[in-house]
Amino acid sequence: MKLQDIRVLVMRVGGTNCDAETQRAFQALGVQAETRHLNELIKQRNLLDYHALVFPGGFSYGDYVRSGAIFARMLSAKLGGELRAFIDQGRPILGICNGFQILVEEGLLPGFDGVSGYPEVSLANNIPQGFKCEWVYLKNLNRGKCVFTSKIPQGKVLRMPIAHGEGRFLLPKEKEEQLLQKLVDEDMVVLRYCNKNGSDADGKYPANPNGSFHDIAGICNREGNIFGLMPHPERAFYWWQQPDWTAQQFMPQFADGKLIFESILEHLTKKL
């Protein structure tokens, strides 16, 4: 399929607030990207008109109860059938920050044994506590399953900003090692927080900014078509969004986050 024929849906509800820049990143790469309110999709029943679905960052429905929980319940209740079909057809879904929290609450990620329908992991309150907005280093650990990092060499260090108060990735304590092994074996680990030189953050602040288990910043499902990450690739798309461009002699034309958008579009153009 040609790039310009690809249709990406950025889904929002009250409190979503990173939709415009996420849509802009896709549009800059030449695809059709639209932002639609969940209410419109419920009315028009046209989710399956889109080739890829994105849940952008924000504080959906105020993030009351738990971050992403209400949006997830609304999805299941109002759009469950179509969403299931969308997933079963292997269409890609991306969740950024609050979007990641939504995918976890919806039971789409990690999906150890397929869609779970309940949260199997947690994105808990940061340690150190509180909302934090800063740039971090990330390492791509994925061996090739995740369609959102297909263009990023394994082991490559990327830089993107985070902006969240609840991003501490946790596995159930009693099965922690076993489930981690599963994540690794099934190639579901995608991005880990790391030091500038790519060495492990080892859980240490500030390289690991929120206390995530195993420094995990982003994971995908077993099939590799659903991907969630806490950092914001759409805020690391253009060179001038980077924090140190004023200090650089020669700046690359784009920032690292662009690779994620390019990867998924390359996947779609090849597949469709």
Binding site: R24, W240, A247
Partner: peptide
């Protein structure tokens, strides 16, 4: 400063805090 999101909208070209 870092407890405020100063990057949302992706249009902050010069941040309130500079460099490493």
């Amino acid at each position: 400063v870092r407890s405020y999101d100063h990057e949302v909208k992706g249009n902050t070209a010069l941040k309130p805090l500079q460099g490493n």
